[in-house]
């Protein structure tokens, strides 16, 4: 189950990082979030990345580092593809 947890952490982290930028909020959601939302979201994103890194090493060791890197690519891809899809519809 740790594998699933790491994947979800990576997805959540990149979603948060993406939403932590006011311009991307417009791209993704069509509107800006509350003015104070960007910084906590961005910080939350970095926190989730750190948490995932620690969990990967603690739970799976060197294997975890490699797998976590792969999940990071998936998380980033999910964010990028969602952005592309949302922007294309506009």
């Amino acid at each position: 189950m740790i594998h699933l947890a790491l994947l979800l952490l990576a997805l959540a982290a990149f979603a948060a990082l993406c939403l932590g930028d006011a311009r991307r909020q417009v791209d993704l959601l069509g509107r800006k979030l509350a003015p104070g939302a960007a910084v906590p979201l961005a910080c939350g994103g970095w926190l989730l990345l750190a948490l995932g890194s620690v969990a990967a090493i603690a739970g799976l060791g060197a294997y975890g580092v490699v797998e976590w890197t792969g999940f990071l690519s998936l998380g980033a891809a999910a964010a990028v593809l969602t952005l592309s899809w949302r922007c294309a519809r506009r």
Binding site: C18, R24, L81, S84
Partner: peptide
């Protein structure tokens, strides 16, 4: 500016 990365038309 990582999230400028996207697939466009």
């Amino acid at each position: 500016d990582f999230f400028l990365l996207r697939i466009g038309k």
